[in-house]
Nucleic acid binder design. Sequence first.
DNA 1: CGACCATTTGATATGGATCAAGCGATGTGG
DNA 2: CCACATCGCTTGATCCATATCAAATGGTCG
Lengths: 221, 221
Amino acid sequence: MTQIQAAHAASQKTGFSDGSSLDSSLEMIGAVMNFRRNEEIYGEGEAAEYLYLVKTGCVRAYKILSDGRRQVGAFYLPGDVFGIEADAEHTHSTEAVGSCAVVVFKRSALASRATGNSKLSQLLLDLTINELKRAQNHILLLIQSAQERVAGFLLEMAARERKSGEINLPMSRQDIADYLGLTIETVSRTLTQLENNRAIALPSSRRVVLRNYGALARLNA
Amino acid sequence: MTQIQAAHAASQKTGFSDGSSLDSSLEMIGAVMNFRRNEEIYGEGEAAEYLYLVKTGCVRAYKILSDGRRQVGAFYLPGDVFGIEADAEHTHSTEAVGSCAVVVFKRSALASRATGNSKLSQLLLDLTINELKRAQNHILLLIQSAQERVAGFLLEMAARERKSGEINLPMSRQDIADYLGLTIETVSRTLTQLENNRAIALPSSRRVVLRNYGALARLNA
DNA sequence: CGACCATTTGATATGGATCAAGCGATGTGG
DNA sequence: CCACATCGCTTGATCCATATCAAATGGTCG
């Protein structure tokens, strides 16, 4: 299930019964903000008063380790909600990957839309469970080989982009490397290997055509 | 914060105001079940009607990949609640590491204890956020070197065991290896390295004395 | 056109996996 | 109570996947 689908499902289950999607509901109660490439949205450790819905562009959540290494925990695409990965404080910093627009709203503002507090809690729970599943899937990727990680990443992106066949990668090789726990060189080499195996085509470095879905899926857990 | 503390905090926040801890509250509404070493508690994909509270022993949550590799997602110790890592179905299988006792109760049974449904939702949300944080920490471990992973694992266990200084490992080297994405040989070698560095002592293979906490912490993110 | 940045490609080094053997503790049958 | 089998752990030797170091290529923007 993609995040968009999850959000819709969550809105169904939680009483947005006017037929509107979660994102259009939230859009009405929040302000749209625009961020430029690499601009910080919030920092790790900040109070987590707000939730965010990606309208356009892509957001990365990351941590910097004491020795300077960077760990990218997630990428958020249009329709994804982020900022839920916390109770009192955010556990990651977030930045715009490229220029992007997000809807920002106070957690507490949700209460006025949902009929009764339990609906709000249910929505937050659904979103958190989604985030947990994403993290569990990420863990699964990280115990595998470089080929398996890259294939898994491409399949994940393809599932989320929803235009089956071709993926547009908004993020750099370095972003992907830091997400997969690999180096930029290994990511690049692995992509060329997959291209040589006819599993994918790379019309440009940020576009990936899935040529042999089965071959990729076989590399996946 | 340990899971026990988290559970207590959760019970405070969610209205178990008679001063009892979460686990003793749950104990009253669930049945105690005993499991033998390696006995399955539930399987991946099963309906997730129940929640579980560890009374004694240790439980592992894991997945088996298509090629037979095993991924241990978490260890649960006394005071920990597990089974929340899911909405409709469990995302992992769970087994008793050694013989253990758990309190089992229906999710829905929580409602009768909590005063009003929102309290229940809040409790579930707190537990889920805790699980999410655990997963995020796990991700952080998996992008690091073998030494860093093992050191991080020991520190995590020490924090949870709460008898600072000495850790009792209920799980085998294979369990640890599958949790850390390493081989059993590498886990073993890394532990002996840490022993040679005077960071730990190993009175027996399942007992670890933390001799130089700072050295371990320096290996940690 | 030229400078800059992202990406690819190449050569080499290395950490952890793999293959293999030895060791120690625990339990079982004689 | 001892001899032996078994299991979990450690240690050793070698191999390989990925990191590291280095350079070339390509794409973008002033």
